[in-house]
Design a protein around this nucleic acid. Structure first.
Lengths: 348, 348
DNA sequence: CTGTTAGCGCTTTCAA
DNA sequence: TTGAAAGCGCTAACAG
């Protein structure tokens, strides 16, 4: 009978961090561990009486579920990896914010990853993050490494691709049509009567969505018989400073320019502030339009005309789509066009 | 002999997502699972020959470790929860960026949480996130719920508190002295000869670090025999718009004001842009100084005088401290003053 | 509605 | 340097 319990006495076999476990709670409540599990995860399946006893035991012991153990057993942690190209670009931050707020409210945690616009990095990040048995995945854009697409597609859990709208997508998709957005601003500039128009962007080899906006811009101008459009494309990331510099370069190269279509508000703001400083009048001397809808744009003088995208809402929408599937429902629309709005202000 | 293998035939008992496991790799390489584990985690402890065979098997099967299982067994996932008050405040984003970049490079993943400046929310977030058996934790500020402090203190794993410097801290600490930072700008304004000075901030009940800066400001002015300082304190979050509004309110209430000390660059930028629009000359009509060192400040006219804090670097430093402990070393200095710099530009 | 049993995939401990 | 055995803490499956 001495051998009945083969547990080494006096210490635990594994160096388990001596936390309160589900068994402790079960003992305290006088039920089986599985009942505690059910009382916590599917309260409906437990009688009110036991549920209450369990709740009390949980409270009195300060039990906190080990989500890792639960995740291993059920092959699904409540973790959602969110993979974006960069954390230094405000756009992505705002989207992540919307995602995070929505998911956290539903009891899911965001695991943050950034790829630096590199699809190989994205692939290996997805690989490693899949090791956490996530409940779903949110990633940026529709272009990925073949391996990533395949792995995610055969995975069988919800996946949302954000920022960009199109086909094919892995599973679900929330974003906007960048070509249209670019065309929209180009058309606006044309409507305003500008003809000598340049498109200015930086880092566009990496950010193909900006290229798409340029493509939309180009098409509209071409249709109007206008060929003259520059495209500054240094490889630095967007910033006020980059905007300032490409603006000055463009001005020097094309003194006759009437309007500039910036790839995003950061560049436009940098340029506009430089124009302020130099006494260059906007839009009289040169008009400026761009893309994003940063709040800064409303506070500049002149106020910045831009194509606004609801970034926070895009994140919320992506998270909602994911949650719907996580809760076993099927979203009526697995593809959400979050839309954009031409916000005409004073700079054009 | 028919009963030798009690496995239900034809299907798995648990709905294991049929991924490649360490056993598959072991079989392929002709070794025991534990050897695969060692070859992957502590390559030094495996002979070169076996290590190579394992690597090949891993590659040919496309094995990706299940970090959840590993985490359960070893009571430590490579996850680092990072808890900040808000994701809509650029400061925290930049710190998170520094953390994320540094940790990801070392093979750790950031689990993002936000508390909305609420210590109760922080406490429950920490609780739930501890369920992931994280390898360490980074959280904001030195003030926490007692339960949080206790839990983290007895936890035995690295914890870094960021943004703010002081005692006591739970484990390690990277930040700046906010009182000093506030005093620094106040002193600068005094040195410039301004006497009728207001401190303007919003949402300061929640952001006690801004209060600390105000306290530093107040002390310096008091020492100079100056009592007159306002403190606008609506409960909204900081934004350009809020800055614009409190600026106008302050001007209306105190037309004789010579200088304004803003709680942060966002407010100051909103105010400065409004001054631009109204033709109010800065610093001739009114001087402006603030706190943060956002890049926007360099592009305004006049360029914004501010107390700059290296936010990205603060994140990097916090992550480095954590990693050092994670790698078994003891940081020489568990408390890092990341410092600030008075950046005198044109607005004062 | 509740309990028993058997793992989830990995790593720790212990032994060779 | 390698392996066998024993769980980490939880939940799916299968009775009762």
């Amino acid at each position: 009978m001495a051998n009945e319990k083969p547990l080494p006495q006096g210490r635990r076999r594994h160096q388990g961090v001596n936390r309160v476990t589900i068994s402790d709670v079960a003992k305290e409540a006088g039920v089986a561990p599985i009942t505690v599990s059910r009382a916590l995860n599917t309260p409906d399946r437990v009688s009110a009486k036991l549920r209450k006893r369990v709740d009390q035991a949980v409270a009195s012991l300060g039990y906190v579920p080990n989500l890792i153990a639960g995740g291993l057993a059920s092959a699904g942690t409540r973790v959602i990896p969110v993979v974006v190209p960069s954390l230094s670009i405000l756009t992505f931050i705002e989207v992540v914010h919307g995602i995070q707020q929505t998911l956290e409210g539903a009891g899911y945690q965001v695991l943050l990853g950034s790829t630096d616009f590199d699809l190989d990095r994205e692939a290996s990040l997805i690989d490693s993050v899949m090791g956490y048995s996530p409940s779903g995945v949110i990633l940026t854009g529709l272009r990925h490494h073949d391996r990533t697409v395949h792995r995610l597609q055969t995975w069988g859990r919800p996946v949302v691709e954000i920022m960009e709208l199109g086909t094919p997508c892995i599973d679900m998709n929330v974003g906007i049509d960048n070509i249209q957005a670019g065309a929209c601003m180009a058309q606006h500039l044309l409507d305003r009567g500008y003809r000598r128009i340049a498109f200015l962007g930086v880092g566009m080899t990496r950010d193909y969505r900006a290229q798409q906006r340029f493509e939309g811009h180009r098409q509209v101008l071409a249709a109007a018989g206008i060929e003259s459009n520059l495209l500054f494309a240094s490889e630095e990331p967007s910033s006020y400073e980059a905007g300032r510099r490409v603006f000055l370069e463009a001005l020097a190269a094309r003194p006759d320019l009437e309007a500039i279509h910036f790839a995003n508000d950061n560049l436009a703001a940098g340029a506009l502030l430089e124009a302020n400083r130099r006494g260059i009048r906007v839009p009289e001397d040169i008009a400026m339009g761009s893309y994003l809808g940063l709040s800064l744009g409303e506070h500049l003088t002149p106020r910045l005309t831009t194509v606004s995208v609801p970034r926070f809402e895009m994140g919320v929408e992506a998270a909602k789509l994911l949650l719907e599937r996580l809760q076993g429902r099927t979203p009526s629309q697995p593809r959400v066009d979050i839309g954009y709005r031409l916000t005409v202000r004073e700079s054009t």
